[in-house]
């Protein structure tokens, strides 16, 4: 019984860590620009597929990963420069459509140049899985969890300690005031998109050995990441992580204890329930509408 519980928990935490990483990317961009970036999932795809392609071209694994991360970072910057920045006066829905257009565009490119096949990446450790309390845990899950923790801590330090991080926060709170204080908001926004893309690509690379990767993996993971970010309250890093874990665990427990038929509906029921009582998510700040 207990081993069963452990098994569901491992599964849930692994899924949750993946969702949390995607959600963090959403949060970062949302914080800096108040854009919901529906192309976030494509950065994961670029991370995973980029690594696969470079590996096949003969690059060693670490180099292939690095190359893929770079590629994703560039894609993030280009996305901002070419698609988001020119649409200055656009409203919320228009920006959503732009990012959706970008995600279709990137997915299309990946499909054209890299093919439609699913690929598996080799796991990072030699051993496949370890046994804990009667349940099995993939070593790759430990990698996912470990890297997720490192990234979260690094991001927290970055925003609270470094000047650059503080500048991003300042830009998100009040763009005009930040500009008056001498912050180059354009550079800051570009940076936010770049970092967010990198973050997504890291997630894409480390989960590919578990989930496989292909040109269209970004759709589902992007959507789940958005849900996780919204559960936590858009714009809160803690919220993104809690939201991701909550999402992963609820999926695993529903599939394990209740019914696998409706497990995919559960995250959405949860978010509707949360929004019903807390219209700004779990950790979201109360939005104040200016008149």
């Amino acid at each position: 019984m207990l081993s069963e519980f452990f098994q569901f928990t491992f599964s849930g935490v692994t899924l949750g860590a993946i969702y949390a990483l995607v959600a963090l990317g959403f949060t970062l961009i949302y914080n800096a620009s108040h854009v919901i970036n529906f192309a976030q999932g494509e950065f994961l795809m670029i991370g995973g597929m980029g690594t696969v392609v470079l590996l096949e071209a003969g690059a060693p694994l670490p180099l292939a990963m690095l190359g893929a991360l770079l590629l994703a970072g560039v894609a993030g910057v280009v996305l901002y420069k070419l698609a988001i920045a020119p649409a200055k006066k656009a409203n919320v829905v228009t920006l959503i459509i732009i990012t959706i257009g970008a995600s279709i565009f990137l997915r299309g490119l990946a499909q054209f140049f890299w093919g439609k096949q699913y690929h598996a990446l080799p796991r990072f450790s030699a051993t496949e899985s370890i046994s804990v309390g009667g349940a099995t845990l993939l070593t790759q899950s430990l990698w996912v969890l470990g890297i997720a923790v490192v990234l979260v801590v690094a991001l927290a330090l970055f925003f609270n300690r470094s000047r650059l991080g503080k500048a991003i926060l300042a830009t998100s709170m009040n763009k005009d005031a930040a500009r008056l204080a001498g912050i180059k908001t354009q550079t800051i926004l570009t940076l936010a998109f770049g970092i967010s893309a990198l973050l997504g690509a890291v997630a894409g690379v480390i989960v590919a050995p578990i989930t496989f990767t292909a040109y269209d993996v970004g759709i589902m993971l992007g959507l789940k990441g958005f849900v996780a970010a919204a559960i936590g309250g858009l714009g809160s890093s803690t919220g993104a992580i809690v939201g991701g874990l909550l999402l992963g665990l609820s999926e695993a427990y529903t599939a394990g204890y209740i019914s696998s038929d409706y497990k995919d509906a559960v995250p959405f029921v949860i978010i509707l329930a949360i929004l019903f009582f807390l219209p700004n998510g779990l950790f979201g700040s109360r939005a104040v509408e200016r008149v």
């Binding site: 409203n91 228009t94 959706i100 257009g101 279709i104 565009f105 997915r107 299309g108 499909q111 054209f112």
Partner: peptide, 20 residues
């Protein structure tokens, strides 16, 4: 054919950027 998605995505972005 295979470039359908690329073209569609590009049209979507372009229209929304230039005709917001």
């Amino acid at each position: 054919q295979e470039l359908e998605m690329v073209v569609f995505g590009a049209i979507l972005m372009a229209v929304m950027i230039f005709l917001p």
